[in-house]
C-alpha cells in the first residue's frame, strides 16, 4: 500500500492460473471420492465405503488448512507485479 497525494493505493495480487487449476483438481478429487463413497455404500462394500469417507474427510481438511494458511501468509508481491482487487488483504497483512 502506498500513499500518493493523499490517496491510498491498494496493490492487490491476482492469483496465478495454476492456483485455479489446483483448486479445480481439488474439487474434482473430492467429487471422485464422494461418488466412490456413495457407490461403495450401494455396493455394500463396507471397508471401501469407510476408506473413501476417511480419504474424503482428510482431503477436505487438508485443502481447507492449506487455503487458510495461504490467506494468512500469502507471500510478498514481486516488484512491478500487476494487482487486482482480490488480494488486498494480503497487502494489508504485509504492512502489519
Amino acid at each position: 500500500m502506498g500513499k500518493e497525494a493523499g490517496f491510498s493505493i491498494l496493490r492487490v495480487r491476482k492469483r496465478p492460473w495454476y492456483v485455479w487449476l489446483l483448486r479445480v483438481a481439488w474439487v474434482l478429487w473430492l467429487l471422485i471420492w464422494l461418488e466412490f463413497a456413495i457407490g461403495s455404500r450401494q455396493e455394500l462394500e463396507q471397508q471401501a465405503f469407510t476408506t473413501a469417507v476417511k480419504v474424503l474427510i482428510v482431503s477436505v481438511f487438508l485443502g481447507l488448512a492449506l487455503y487458510s494458511w495461504k490467506l494468512r501468509y500469502p507471500g510478498k508481491m514481486a516488484e512491478g507485479e500487476e494487482s487486482t482487487s482480490r488480494n488486498f488483504r494480503a497487502e494489508i497483512n504485509d504492512k502489519k
Binding site: 471422485i32 461418488e35 466412490f36 456413495i38 457407490g39 461403495s40 450401494q42 455396493e43
Partner: peptide, 9 residues
C-alpha cells in the same frame, strides 16, 4: 468382479 456402482471401478 465388481457391481460397477461407482465410476472409480
Amino acid at each position: 468382479a465388481k457391481k460397477d456402482k461407482t465410476v472409480l471401478h
